[in-house]
Design a binder for these strands. Structure first.
Lengths: 203, 203
DNA sequence: CTAAAATGTGGACGCTGTCAATATTAGGAT
DNA sequence: ATCCTAATATTGACAGCGTCCACATTTTAG
C-alpha cells in the first residue's frame, strides 16, 4: 500500500508500534493519542477507527506485551528443556526481568488499571503467561524437585515477586542497600533464590 | 481560621486529603488538580502556592502513604511483640495487604513513576517502611527462627511479593484459579506461606 | 503603620480526548 | 466496468486539563 495514500494500510499496527515507542521514550505520562497520530502522519481522529478510546489502545499494547512475554518464556523453556525444572524456573525469572528491563514500555502498561471485565482478551493473555510458570512448577513437582504444594500457589508467588521487583526497579532506583551494584538480572536471581531456598530454618 | 476568608488556612493539608479522596473514588486517571481545587472551594491556581506541579502533589500523597504504612507496621509489630518473629512477619504481610486494600488511593500512587532523585523525602519514606520488615527479619535471625541469609535480601523478597500481590489485586481481578474465593488477606497469607516454607524439596 | 512576603484570583495559552459531520477509498455484486 | 456500501481517514468543534502571567488580598515583621 502506498505510503502517501489516503488510506494508511496498516494503521492499527502502526498505532500499536508508535504508542509503544512513545511510551518507551517519553514515559506513559507523556504519551498522547494525538502525538502518536502525528508521528505516524495521520489525522488526530484516525485512531478512533481502530480503538474505541485511548485506554483501549493501551490495553492492546498491554496484551501484545503479554503475548511477547509468553513467547520469550516459551523460547527459554524450550532452550533449557534438558536442565532441571528448578533451573528452568530460574531461567524464566531471569527472562521475565530482562524482558521488563528491555521493554519498559510494556512494563508501564501491562499491569495498569484496565478492568479485566472490559478487556477479556487482555486477561486471557496475562493468564497465558502465568500458565507457563505453572507448567514448569508442575513438572518440577512431578519430578520431585519442587514441593507438592498447590502449583498455582507456588507459581503465583514467583510471578508476584517478579512483578514486584520489576515495577520497583522501574522507579529508577531501589533502596541503595538493596541494590549494591547488582544488575537487575542478578537481583532477580538473588531474590528468587530466597524463595527457592525458603527462609525458615526448618523448611 | 474562617472558612469563607480569602486565605484558606490549611490549604496544603486540604489538598492532600482532597487528592487522596478523589483518587480513591474516581481513580488516578480521573483525578485533576482543578477538580480538587473546586471541591475544596478554591481557585484553580491556588494549589501552585503549595506544590510546584501536579506530580509534586502526587509525590506528597505517596509520601504520606508510606508514612501511614510505616505507622501501621509499627503498631502491628508492637502488638505482636510477644509472638515469634515469623508470626510478626506474617502479621506485617497481612497489615501491608490490608492497608493497600483499604487505601487504594495510596496504592495507585506510592509506587508510581516519580524519579526518586526529584523527591528524596519520598525515597526516604519508602525506605523507612521497608526498614520495619528488615528489623523483624533481623530479629528472627538473631533468635534462630529465620535462616541467616542477608536480612535485606529476605525482607526485600517479602516486600516485593507484597507489592506485586497488591498491585495485581488492584486490577480488579486475579486469574480466577488463583483467587478461588479467598479474600485478599487470605491470599497474602497463603502466598507468604509459600515463601516462608520454601518451595524446594530439600531446603 | 507600613513595606514586604505569603497566599489566593482571574485570564490566557496550548494541549488533550472525544464527538459529529464529512470526505475519500476499497471491494464485491451486478 | 460500474455502482453501492462499508471501511477508512479528515476537518472542525468542544470542554477540560496543566501551567504561566499579572494582579488582588491578607498576614506578618520591622
Amino acid at each position: 500500500m502506498n505510503k502517501d495514500s489516503y488510506h494508511h494500510g496498516d494503521l492499527k499496527h502502526a498505532l500499536l508500534v508508535g504508542a509503544c515507542e512513545m511510551i518507551a521514550t517519553e514515559g506513559i505520562q507523556n504519551m498522547s493519542l494525538r502525538k502518536v497520530a502525528r508521528k505516524i502522519g495521520v489525522s488526530h481522529n484516525a485512531p478512533y477507527q481502530h480503538f474505541a478510546d485511548k485506554e483501549a489502545l493501551l490495553a492492546a499494547v498491554a496484551q501484545e506485551g503479554f503475548q511477547r512475554l509468553t513467547d520469550e518464556l516459551d523460547t527459554v523453556i524450550e532452550r533449557t528443556s534438558t536442565q532441571s525444572c528448578v533451573e528452568q524456573l530460574k531461567a524464566c525469572g531471569n527472562t521475565y526481568i530482562k524482558f521488563m528491563m528491555d521493554n519498559s514500555a510494556y512494563l508501564e502498561v501491562m499491569f495498569g488499571p484496565y478492568p479485566y471485565e472490559d478487556y477479556p482478551e487482555l486477561a486471557e493473555a496475562g493468564l497465558e503467561s502465568l500458565q507457563r510458570l505453572i507448567a514448569v512448577v508442575a513438572r518440577g513437582q512431578a519430578s520431585g524437585e519442587i514441593k507438592s504444594l498447590n502449583p498455582v500457589e507456588v507459581a503465583g508467588t514467583v510471578w508476584m515477586s517478579l512483578h514486584g521487583l520489576s515495577t520497583i526497579l522501574r522507579n529508577g532506583k531501589l533502596p541503595p542497600q538493596l541494590v549494591s551494584e547488582r544488575t537487575p538480572t542478578q537481583l532477580a536471581s538473588d531474590f528468587l533464590d530466597v524463595i527457592y531456598e525458603g527462609i525458615l530454618v526448618q523448611a
